[in-house]
Computed example of a mutant assay.
Amino acid sequence: MKKWLFGISIFLNIIFILIFVWNSIHSHSNEIGRLEKDIEIGYFNSDNAIFKIPKGLTVKNVSERGLGAIGQFENERFSIVITSNDASLVNYDLPKESLNLFSNFYSAEIPQNYLQNGIPQGNFVYELYFAEFGGRMKNAECKIEIDGNKIIIEQNENTNLTGGTEIFSGLILKHKSGKWILGENEEDKNAEEIGGCTEIPIIDFKTKIIEWC
């Protein structure tokens, strides 16, 4: 009788160990970290931002690993826990087809491949780098609207520059050097000097920084 119970105990322990090892290898790590970049959030397959999650928030890694990651769409995943006392805040009884689920859930970050002639289209938050201070002055935020190669730059609630809300309205041009610049007319793409404290700012779509003066 004792041998029988002992055998069952060993078998169950082996099962528990195998489950533990399996979960350790194939499930998400649940590592706690800090968001290092602002993220613009929008609906899946949409190019318009709904709101922005600011950098500095604490997040948890929920990326699947091992066999669990096979076929997973956009594997860099993290979670932010939102709590509420309002039980009616979320409706969990909706039909699944109405939730626009894409495979294993959805893409939250705004797609960055919506381009027109190499220029991203839509509304974004960029930073102004003040060239005359050589990095000694903190970058300022600005919101920009791009339509074709036309751009409007405005101050937002985090910007405190002199003048009005709109700080630039003009064109995005490919300079003869290969850099993207902000100009007032097509001739600016042949300017001898750009960036720094010239009258022709440089814009970087990857870093979302505009070299300002």
Rank of each mutant, 00 (worst) to 15 (best):
F130R: 08
I8D: 00
E97L: 11
L115V: 07
T159F: 04
L57Y: 09
S79A: 15
K52E: 08
I152F: 07
N45K: 14
F124D: 04
L173D: 03
E74P: 01
T83H: 07
E186C: 06
A87Q: 10
F51C: 13
A140P: 00
S46N: 13
D38Y: 05
F6T: 10
I25R: 04
S46G: 08
I25S: 03
G164F: 02
E166S: 02
L12G: 05
E127F: 11
N104F: 14
S24I: 06
T165Q: 10
I146D: 04
E193M: 09
G56W: 02
K143T: 12
N185C: 03
N48I: 06
I70Q: 10
I167M: 02
K52H: 01
E166L: 00
K3E: 14
L101H: 06
A108S: 09
K143C: 03
E64Q: 12
D188G: 06
L89K: 15
D38Q: 05
K176C: 01
I25M: 12
H26Q: 02
W22C: 12
E64C: 05
I10L: 15
N185G: 00
N139G: 09
S177H: 06
S63W: 10
W22Q: 11
D86N: 15
D147T: 14
G134M: 02
L115M: 11
G7H: 01
K150H: 11
K96C: 03
K96F: 10
I50E: 13
E36C: 00
E40A: 05
V62G: 08
W22F: 15
I50M: 14
L101E: 10
E76A: 02
E193H: 07
I151S: 02
S98Q: 10
E157V: 14
Q116L: 05
R34T: 13
T159V: 07
I210D: 03
P201Q: 06
M137G: 12
I10S: 09
S88P: 01
C213L: 04
G183A: 09
E127K: 15
N156L: 08
E31L: 10
D93R: 06
N190Y: 15
G134H: 02
N30M: 10
E166C: 00
A191Q: 05
C213M: 06
L94V: 14
E157G: 13
V62L: 09
F130T: 12
L67T: 11
I53E: 01
I82H: 05
G135T: 09
E184P: 00
E154L: 08
P95W: 07
N123K: 12
I41W: 01
F133N: 14
L35K: 01
N75A: 11
G7V: 12
N156M: 09
Q121L: 02
S29V: 08
G68I: 07
Y114F: 07
